[in-house]
């Protein structure tokens, strides 16, 4: 009950015009992390890891994209409405990829 009231207060505070302002030190930290991850992913591409080269490169890309969405695009501080919207987009994209790939990957299975 108490937490419910607090979240209502929080919503009211948001509507009163108090949007969260992200400070430069955080932006700088995210910027440097993104640069470090770029160096890491380029470096990893010179190491032979078989199929894991693609897996690791895409995992790093997903992590970088998450940093951008959460902090540069403020989703970490946004309302549940916006978090839900981003989630819906991600889900629809996964449907696009996975439903198309179920057919093609199962046909080409073992060839790559």
């Amino acid at each position: 009950m108490d937490t419910h009231n607090r979240s209502l207060d929080h919503d009211r505070a948001e509507h009163a015009g108090e949007m969260h302002i992200v400070r430069p030190p955080l932006y700088i930290a995210i910027f440097l992390s993104l640069l470090a991850l770029t160096a890491l992913t380029t470096g990893m591409s010179y190491v032979d890891l078989g199929v894991f080269n693609a897996v690791i490169a895409l995992a790093i890309a997903c992590f970088k994209a998450s940093l951008v969405v959460l902090f540069f695009m403020h989703i970490h501080y946004s309302s549940r409405l916006l978090k839900m919207t981003v989630g819906a987009g991600l889900f629809t994209f996964m449907l696009l990829i996975s439903l198309t790939m179920t057919d093609y990957i199962s046909r080409a299975w073992g060839r790559f």
């Binding site: 770029t38 992913t41 380029t42 990893m44 591409s45 010179y46 080269n53 693609a54 490169a57 895409l58 790093i60 890309a61 970088k64 994209a65 951008v68």
Partner: peptide
């Protein structure tokens, strides 16, 4: 961020 690994990196 996604084009870079797909086009440049994963097939070196």
């Amino acid at each position: 961020i996604f084009l870079f690994p797909l086009l440049y990196l994963i097939s070196r």
